[in-house]
Design a protein around this nucleic acid. Structure first.
Lengths: 167, 167
DNA sequence: AATCAGTTCCCGTATGAAACCTGCTTCGAT
DNA sequence: ATCGAAGCAGGTTTCATACGGGAACTGATT
């Protein structure tokens, strides 16, 4: 399965329409079971927490994986209620139009404080949408945090295959 | 199967009529085995506990799943009696009219203290109906609770595929 | 039979979103 | 450097939906 990769800057017009990076479309098409050549794929936009100033976009197959995990929790449990609120209530389907664009509603634009530009960030099985300056700041924060780790205790060290863990 | 997603605010008129979000109708149609194009799907409204100031709406297939789970409990057991009371007694069928609206009876409106507006909340396989301010308060509570979790003990950590749990 | 409350059906209308169309820019191949 | 295709962006039109008003129907009561 193809993955979302790279960063890409696009204009947002007065109606909130914005082009999805062309490479991302290919990933969305692959991940939409209902997609047929000639039609347009859809995706799901999640705007989790107010504190997080970005949207997260999922392909259909990718959000289904998440939903299936939630469905395994007991119905009516508090954990499940919280997750449904975070993932289902705070989200929406988005149809991609014939020109490869999606519409960010006014509400969504205000949420992430976007005016006339948006930057798309590939994150593997999902992508993020940021206001460009907010993204730059977030990336600086990430780099700062990363540099605080020492050699021994570093996220990269979590990248051990199961094989090498057993050894 | 499509899922209920997003939040949507609608007017409630003096007769108690309120539009169901257009996207929710598609989910109800998919979930109603008796639905045929041109007709209107129905749904089930549950008003569980007095303390919970919202209604929960299910598609037919979705409420069937819940009923099946209840049916697995021993007949005449106390647990089953309680659940039947919660889920069956405190609920009603609701027909959607030609304009995609349903009627909230006066009793239901009083129960959730709705006056002239209602907000619909997608919760995956069901949806909720709240008085808008009550919902805002509930959502603040959810976010507050969510922020109390630390990094290690967080509902999102329950979303691990079986594979990685085994490792 | 007459009244009344509650409900369903059938409209008209306004708003906002989706579809359509059309240029401009970028990029890759020749 | 030139050409063609694809990506991007913008404006206009069309249509679906939300929402309210009013007429017709129900059936319960006196």
């Amino acid at each position: 399965m193809r993955r979302f990769r790279g960063e890409s800057l696009h204009k947002v017009d007065v109606k909130g329409r914005v082009s999805i990076p062309a490479q991302f479309r290919r990933v969305l098409e692959e991940g939409d079971p209902d997609f047929k050549s000639g039609l347009n794929p859809s995706c799901v936009l999640v705007h989790n927490q107010k504190s997080k100033k970005c949207l997260e976009g999922y392909s259909i197959s990718s959000i289904n994986e998440v939903d299936d995990l939630v469905s395994r929790l007991p119905r009516y449990s508090r954990d499940r209620e919280i997750l449904e609120r975070m993932l289902n209530a705070q989200s929406s389907y988005a149809q991609i139009d014939d020109n490869g664009r999606l519409v960010l509603s006014l509400k969504l634009r205000q949420r992430i404080e976007i005016e006339s530009e948006a930057i798309f960030i590939g994150m593997g099985d999902k992508f993020q949408v940021w206001e460009p300056n907010a993204y730059r700041r977030d990336m600086e924060q990430i780099e700062y945090e990363f540099n605080l780790y020492d050699e021994k205790d570093n996220p990269f060290n979590l990248l051990q295959s199961k094989h090498s863990l057993d050894a």
